[in-house]
């Protein structure tokens, strides 16, 4: 997950200042670690350079001057691609997945589809592990089981999220 993709997603609902973006990001996803301003501006300039955002205008309201950014169609395509691609099932994915779900909701995409896609990917992975387990020795089996249980935890969380999508939608959109 990159901050850039999250910014693109946030910008989809309308142009924002860098400061707004940081606040929105921190509000929704920065439970663990808020962003530094340096991170914000570095990311935005990279996005600008890649053509995913463009300058929407500059404002000056008694203070320093503020740049407003808007997402380009190339940027929207990038968010699309990112949201519809399953994450590689790894450990501790919640952060990324949660971000993706919220962004999908914010941008009016189907969060359920996103979850289904992710689930399929998880299951594919789990199937492999299950097969490996069946043919491997005990050490293999234990390793596989560890991975399986973690994947299962992720998936359970996914299920739960899916089950609470309605509730989440209400919260996110207010």
């Amino acid at each position: 997950m990159s901050i850039g993709q999250v910014f693109l997603g946030l910008l989809e609902s309308g142009p924002r200042h860098g400061y707004d973006l940081k606040r929105a990001y921190d509000d929704r996803f920065g439970h663990v670690r808020p962003l530094h301003y340096g991170q914000v501006y570095a990311t935005l300039s990279r996005l600008l350079k890649d053509g995913f955002v463009e300058l929407d205008g500059v404002e000056q309201v008694d203070g320093p001057e503020r740049k407003r950014y808007a997402v380009t169609s190339a940027g929207v395509t990038d968010v699309d691609r990112w949201l519809s691609t399953a994450e590689k099932p790894e450990l501790y994915l919640q952060n990324t997945l949660y971000t993706k779900v919220v962004l999908a909701l914010l941008s009016g995409r189907s969060a359920a589809d996103l979850l289904d896609v992710q689930r399929a990917e998880h299951l594919r992975h789990m199937r492999e592990l299950t097969r490996r387990k069946a043919s491997g020795d005990l050490a293999d089996q234990l390793v596989c089981d560890h991975a399986l249980f973690h994947l299962e935890a992720d998936l359970r969380w996914l299920e739960l999220t899916a089950a609470r999508l309605d509730e989440l939608t209400k919260r996110v959109l207010t």
């Binding site: 289904d116 689930r119 789990m126 994947l151 299962e152």
Partner: peptide, 25 residues
């Protein structure tokens, strides 16, 4: 089943939501 580990024994899965199926594989 609703246990992923059990579903791990399958070749593919079909998801049912609100009475509709989604065949993701």
């Amino acid at each position: 089943t609703h246990e992923a580990r059990v579903a791990g024994y399958s070749d593919r899965e079909v998801v049912v939501r609100d009475g509709r199926t989604r065949d993701l594989t």
